[in-house]
């Protein structure tokens, strides 16, 4: 009976995580600009990975493997936003302009 509840919550969490990863991937492909692409991937990818790993922790129960998964979750929650921050900051310091309404899309924004 307990394992049924565990499996139900695992499936729910993993499906939610896959949904957020899918949204992040579509955002990476469809959005026009570097900053908005970073915006789409950083938050939703982090949340999707966290949800998937939380589902796997629920699947494992109290075990050594779930402790390791908890450590992975902690490190992803630390390192993924920091990496996105470093990317966006490097682009800003390299004078990459964000895309506004009047900007020419084909020429890019190298000016």
């Amino acid at each position: 009976m307990m394992t049924d509840i565990q499996i139900i919550f695992t499936v729910l969490f993993v499906i939610a995580g896959i949904f957020f990863l899918l949204v992040g991937s579509i955002g990476t492909i469809r959005l026009p600009d570097f900053y908005s692409r970073t915006h789409a991937t950083s938050k939703s990818d982090t949340l999707g990975l966290l949800l998937i790993i939380a589902g796997l922790i629920i699947y494992e129960g109290f075990h050594v493997n779930s402790l390791k998964l908890l450590l992975i979750l902690l490190f992803i929650a630390l390192s993924n936003p920091i990496g996105s921050h470093a990317l966006a900051r490097a682009a800003y310091e390299a004078n990459l302009k964000p895309l506004f309404k009047g900007t020419d899309k084909e020429k890019g924004n190298q000016a």
């Binding site: 490190f75 630390l78 390192s79 920091i82 470093a86 900051r89 004078n95």
Partner: peptide, 18 residues
């Protein structure tokens, strides 16, 4: 070209993770 300063978030995060 702006002056480059080190980001404290990146510095602190890498020092925490390393």
């Amino acid at each position: 070209m702006k002056k480059r300063v080190a980001s404290p978030i990146v510095l602190l995060g890498s020092r925490l993770l390393s």
